[in-house]
Every structure is written in C-alpha cells, then in structure tokens.
Design a protein around this nucleic acid. Sequence first.
DNA 1: AAAAAAC
Length: 629
Amino acid sequence: MRTSWADSVANSASEIAVSDNSSVPRPTRSTYVPPHLRNRQASDAPNLPGPATERATFTGTAGGSLGSRWSSDPPKPEMGRPGPGYGYAGAVAGRGGSGGGWNNRSRGWDRREREVNPFDDDVDDKTDDAEQAFSEQENTGINFDAYEDIPVETSGENVPPPVNTFAEIDLGDLLNQNIRRCKYVKPTPIQRHAIPIALSGRDLMACAQTGSGKTAAFCFPIISGIMREQYVQRPRVARTVYPLALILSPTRELSCQIHDEAKKFSYQTGVKVVVAYGGAPINQQLRELERGVDILVATPGRLVDLLERARLSLQMIRYLALDEADRMLDMGFEPQIRKIVEQMDMPNRGVRQTMLFSATFPREIQVVYNCSIRLASDFLSNYIFLAVGRVGSSTDLIVQRVEFVHESDKRSHLMDLLHAQRENGAHGKQALTLVFVETKKGADSLEHWLCINGFPATTIHGDRTQQERELALRSFKTGKTPILVATDVAARGLDIPHVAHVVNFDLPNDIDDYVHRIGRTGRAGKSGLATAFFNEGNLSLARPLAELMQEASQEVPAWLTRYASRAPYGGSKGRRSGGGRFGGRDFRRESSFGKNLDYYGGGNSGSGYGVPSSNYGGGYAPGVTSAWD
DNA sequence: AAAAAAC
C-alpha cells in the first residue's frame, strides 16, 4: 500500500505499536525495554562518560543489567558477548549474567582503555588547515533548510511514522551521547523515516543520496538493537567469529568510511565494529576480528575469503545492510552477494533484518528480470520501500552543465576549466575537482598530463595498490593535489568534503552512474558544480540526461534536447530509475499488474521512462511526482 | 565494454 508521509502520520499510532511483521518470528525491538530500565526516565542519563564513570563498569557487576548493553551505565564490553577469543563460553554469560566472565576483567579494562576516542581523534587526524577551518561548518552547518522541502514516499504495509527529533527515538543513552558528540542536532529526512522503520524490525529498501545521512540511518538501529540484546549466546568454535550485523559495500574506501562512522556511533557502547577488505594484509584484520566483533563492515571478496577460511561465520547475523545496494546487486557483484547471503550460513530473510540503501534502485533489481532472477525480493521480507528526494543531485544544489566536447578536445577543454577555476578561486587556489574518466589507463594518462601541465593531480582506480588509493584520497582531501582523476571506483558513496566541481570527462553509459558521480559534490545540503563533456559517443545518454536535468530545473542546451528527441527509445536500461525528484520508486506495485509484466522486454510505459504507464495504479500521475510538488 | 571485488 502506498502511503504518503501524511498518511503515515495519520495511521501512525495503531501501526507502530504492533509489530507489523507478524508472520515473522522477530523480536519487536521498538517496544522491548530490558527489565532494569523499565519505569526509568531519560533524565537518569549519566553525564558524558569520562574517567569518573569508568568505575561503574566494575562495581556494577552484580546488577540485573549484566549482559545487556542497553543501559545508561557504562558498557561492559565483555559481558554477554564473549568473542570466541576470550576463552570462556558464551553459555556463562548466557545464564543471565552470572559473574562468570570476570576473570577477564583486566582484558575488558584494557579494551576500554584502548578504545580511541574517535571524536578527539578526528581533530588530531585531520591536520590540514582546510579541514580545521571547515570543521565547524561540517558538523553544525548542514544546510537543513535544503532538507525541509524534500518529498518522501513510502510504501509497504504498516509503515511506522517518521520522527522529527532524535529525542523521540529510544536509541539508548550511550548512542544518544555519541549522536550529540557528532553534533547531529536533528535527523535528516532519511533518518527521520528509516530509523523508526528499522527499529520496528522491518526490512527496508531505501533510496536516498549519500551525503544525506544514510550511514547513520542504518547504523543507529543496528547499534541500538545490539545494545538492547540482553545477551547473545554465540557459538564457541576455535578461531571462528560470529558477528551480529554485516554491512556490505562495493568499494574498499567506502567500507573504511562506513567503519569510521560506525566507530563514532558505537563509541563506548561496547558494540565492536570491525572492517575487512581486500588489498590490505589479512592478518591484521584477523587479529581485529579475534578481539571480538559485533558489526562487520566488509567488501565482498575479502568477506568470502574469511568465510572460506572458516574464520568467520554468518550464523548469528541479525542485521544485514547493503550500502549502494544497486551496485551490490548488479551483474558484476550479484553472484558474490548471492553466495554470501544465500549460500553460506546466513539466517534466512525474515529471520534476519535486511536493509538495502542506495541513491538509485533500477527496476530490474526490484522485480523479476531475465525470466527467473529475483534480486531484492530474494533478500527482503515484506519490506518497506522508502524514497527520499535527492539532496543535491536533482535539486538546484548542484548546478549541472553539459558541454559538447569532441574527444580530441577534451584535455584542452578541461585545462580551460581548471584555469578559469583557479583564477576565480579564492587566493588563486584550486578548488577540489573530481574528474571522472572511463578507464583505468585513461585515468593514469590524464593524471600525468595534468601534472606536467602544472595542475597537481592524483588518481584513484582499481589498478592501483590499496596504499596508493588511500594516499591519493588523502592527498586530494587535504588539497595537496586538488584534482583527483577517478574511475567509477570513486563514484559511489565516498564522502569527500568540499568537492566544488565534478567533471564528467568521460560520461558513463548509465544515467544512474551519472547521478552517483555528481553526488560527490553538493553534499550535506551544500552547493556544487557538475560539468559533463558530451559528444557523439554519448548518444544513448542524451535522453535520460536531458530529462534528469530538466527535472532538476537545470538549463538544458538546445543541442542536447535535439539529440534527446532523436535518440532511440530508452536510456541505457530503458528507464529512469527515479520519478521526478525521487531517488527511486517502488516497483512492486507495477509488477503486480499482470498486463504490465512485459516492461523488462522493452515494452514498458510507452510514454517514456520515469513516467508511469497508464495502468500504473500508484500515486504518480504523469508530471505529478508527489503531493509536495 | 569497463569497473569493482581475494589470495
């Protein structure tokens, strides 16, 4: 059932109280309160944990809260969730918190001591002036005005209503403290909607631009849920670890970024976050895992490696999150993801909670395609679809330009842009510019050419070592090399503050990739510029690009409109993934109309992509994308 | 066709 935001609010009270997924044996996290916290007021929250509160970790051992991390008491990292490396059985803690694990107290102490303060660290780590200068704006200056008008669509059964403040959500005192430390004042639209849904235990497919607070939207409920568990009795198998949550992402850098954020959110909650990805020595990651893991952030290849070595089991996974899920489920990744989700020891959908997040969700990922393959529906159970209007990519926060540039003129044209930018920039400094190219070789050669022409550039792509990739990213972020030439490895999810300009030196073939790429600028409500070099090689993109720009109230050059009208039917996939200002649409409805099942054969909605066909019964009429328009 | 993702 498609419901609008307003409908959700109207229906709210009855629906949220009941766990909506009655057919699924899943704890109703939204309502559960551990016994020791019942009748307890929020005002009981302790002060920010500091050295003074540390003692409570060891004086409170006899309390009924043993084994639970859902507590305003300082966390007890060891209790109730012994990592396999600890040498005592999960059953000990599982008995409801007898003091069984206390011979490990020094180890627990050590771990607390060793937990680096990610907030202080943040300051130390970013030694560059730019970061310091921007940091205030970064944390508190999120342009929330830009968020106010954002349209939201939800569909699915019994959608929990959104919240307006973090205070309305019972995330737990410890997590709330970290939210304050992050200086998050109020939830972003995706957070307002996704967090209540996730907390109610429902599966979720969410469309929202990265940079709009997606990571927190799935991390908060996961961390909160893990803290709520009274205890989790995990199997004890030598050298095998059993995380409770798995977060998958398509690139190593993105996994690192999610890990860094999740560490902040889980600081001093006792919830342990570990990252695993390829291109880095596996031994260090293994050691980290052995020290205990609740939330594992990983790229698929390294994860499969760990599973095959039996150093990791997915048996205890309760939460599965796929970031950039459209990429994770596309042709290249699908077999690996299927292996991880369906052919290892992961609990079935419905048993675990599954959340897919992306800026775009092509219909072929949502519904049947290739006759038999189901993607999202294989992984999700009675899910809620949530689409939050794009922050930036399709609004006027990003100015999109398209220029007709012949292949042979691209370099000199780029040079002109960079020169102009440098002259107009403050103090003659080059603004951070991200240049996307098609191939790895092309990236190297363009980087070299820029460097010998006086523009400090670096490059990131899959042929570089992980060390080189990370160095390049750092060098770009700090402004040491203000130009980064990148392949699509950098297209998704990467949160690089202060990217002023994204240049599509080579346009992608898929409009969704274009959306992801330009989303590297104009983040968190800030403005940005995106310039595309278009020529005869990009004809298939003419129509979807012209439409996208038009929807975003961008100036579409007349020549592009002409190309678009001449273009053969369809974009790269014969559709636009989003209607209007939305990052996507729930295609379940359409698929339920029997006569509309030929859409993947190319015969869909003859009126064009993005515009629902006449027999589509949803809330979109042609030209009307939502009640907010 | 390219890119990404394990050793």
